[in-house]
Amino acid sequence: MKKSFLIFLFFIFHIYAFDLVRIKELYENAEKFDKKPVIIEGEVIGDIMGKKDEKWINVKEEKGDFAIGVVVSKEDALKIENLGRYGIKGDIIRVKGIYNTSCIKHQGERDIHAIKIEIIKRGGKLPIPEISLSKIISTFILLGITYLIILLYHKKTKSLQ
């Protein structure tokens, strides 16, 4: 009885084992993870989109350029405060869900249907470069050069006429 219970537990665990994988790996070894439970971590970028009760977010690897669409519930979407874009670091989240290389429900898209998401690290404002002094000096020098050349050009064309 005890043995069969352990086998049952192992079976359940095996079916519902969530592997932490890189988003890049979901692209490179798509077949291996297709329709299987996975855990990914990454930055939420762009916007939260979608219908009333089903939202789309895009999650991008912190190191790397791979991003994937994740379908989340409205409640989970509300947990996200910062969306990655210029000047903003998005929240870093952990997504537990089922990965699809070609999701039938969403017209063949590669996506993850989230079961649970959690915020690992809050994002926030990123330092935006202030106007640099060297650029201002370059602008004024160039302005002077341009003015001088235009002046010389007009003098030359007048003399040619």
Partner: peptide, 14 residues
């Protein structure tokens, strides 16, 4: 985006 704008002013002057 002030700094970015300046890049385009420099490019324009060039």
């Amino acid at each position: 985006e002030w700094d970015c704008s300046l890049d385009f002013i420099i490019s324009s002057l060039l």
